[in-house]
Nucleic acid binder design. Structure first.
Lengths: 223, 223
DNA sequence: CAAATATAATAGTATTACTATTAAAATACG
DNA sequence: CGTATTTTAATAGTAATACTATTATATTTG
């Protein structure tokens, strides 16, 4: 996988940014540093002014790339899901039988990220942001508008892909989308709870529990 | 149930409020109106100034009850979970066999709220707030502090109660807490997605699908 | 090399999320 | 009943946020 990723650029919806941050050095530093700052201080305390100062630039320059910090968060989420989709396709094409393919997919969706494969984006830290902050992006009054503009298209496509794999295993299963979105959001919650509200989880019992738990849950549920 | 509720007052952690809002008419109007305003405008756009104006009072008066709008949200969440715990205990005591008891519990956790049983709190609208806004309460940098102060105690107790019911059905099931928190958060997500991102769900296929889906998922998973 | 574009710096605005102070109104209690 | 206490309302003020607008200076491109 490491061999291919450096050649890939994800096609992120152009409506999300004012100017493509991947098109300049400043843009890349904006994305790179915003990830570490949001992780460190949390989305609420993060501001474009602080970001400008950190990258030796200016608040107004950041606004030339993203019209709001909300848009920047949506951009990061889209980058994340493009990356997950890429890994998902890579890990599942040509895999048979259907059940093994599905198992691989669930692993991609629920595993912990341990190292950075490429580019200026730190995927380990980005995943932490997805876990702690991403729900703030879509729990907004603007959700319907933004959904129409296609801001959540990639996420929905990932859910669709895995739902199709569920149906390959059991074509008569009634609720594939609910199952897949439950696993995705659930795994994020379990990662967060294990850090902050551990009594809502059972992670202390072993390392790969989240993957094991959801893999088992899916296979049993669809049979 | 309607006969008992009017006599009940939930013991909400005193650290959450400055002055108990149930102790005065103004306090009750603060809670009552904040629920409808947060639902209408979303948590971000909701302010104590607007609330003061709406209840014919003043911003500063609201601060005498809650030290921040975050604290008010935490209060509403606690009220909600106290109410759910009450319903849960009511619906499950003396029920046998264990599997039926668990089924009742899952129904309480995943059902839609359709009418208001009592008091100045509109539970139908409060549930909408829980679904759309509650994750903002605990996705904060202050989570560990607040957890130590007991802000999430009732929620954790509800998870514990239902986890115990899971273990009654299958004492050797490894991940009861993960299963129960997955169901609770998952059901909230499905309610939200069905309104705003329907392709992440399968709710169009029928009315009680969310209850059915999670009940089936739990029973199959623990066997 | 001129023109176009990108960046940096500065200033300004409405709003937010509060704190502080004071006065008026309501309530409690001896 | 009257005074003390508490509650509420009104006003003012503050630092920070989330922007917009303007201009000057770099940098890139044709």
């Amino acid at each position: 996988m490491e061999h291919l990723l450096p050649f890939v650029k994800f096609g992120i919806n152009e409506k999300i940014y004012v100017k493509d941050p991947e098109s300049s050095d400043l843009g890349r530093r904006i994305v790179e540093e915003s990830i570490s700052m949001i992780d460190e201080m949390g989305f609420e305390r993060f501001t474009f002014k602080k970001l400008g100062a950190k990258i030796g630039s200016n608040e107004s320059s950041v606004y030339r790339y993203f019209e709001s910090k909300h848009a920047l968060l949506v951009y990061l989420i889209n980058w994340y899901w493009s990356w997950v989709e890429y890994k998902l396709v890579f890990a599942t094409t040509n895999v048979t039988p259907a059940e093994l393919k599905l198992t691989h997919a669930i692993k991609i969706l629920t595993q912990e990220i341990e190292d950075n494969t490429f580019s200026f984006i730190n995927e380990v830290v980005l995943k932490k942001i997805i876990v702690s902050e991403s729900s703030k992006a879509y729990h907004t009054k603007d959700i319907d508008d933004e959904n129409e503009k296609g801001f959540y298209k990639i996420y929905k496509r990932v859910v669709q892909r895995v739902s199709d794999m569920v149906l390959e295993v059991n074509p008569s299963f009634e609720f594939p989308h609910m199952l897949v979105s439950t696993v995705i959001e659930g795994a994020h919650h379990q990662r967060y709870f294990s850090q902050h509200l551990p009594s809502l989880t059972d992670v202390s019992k072993g390392k790969n529990n989240i993957i094991r738990f959801y893999t088992d849950l899916v296979l049993k549920t669809i049979k």
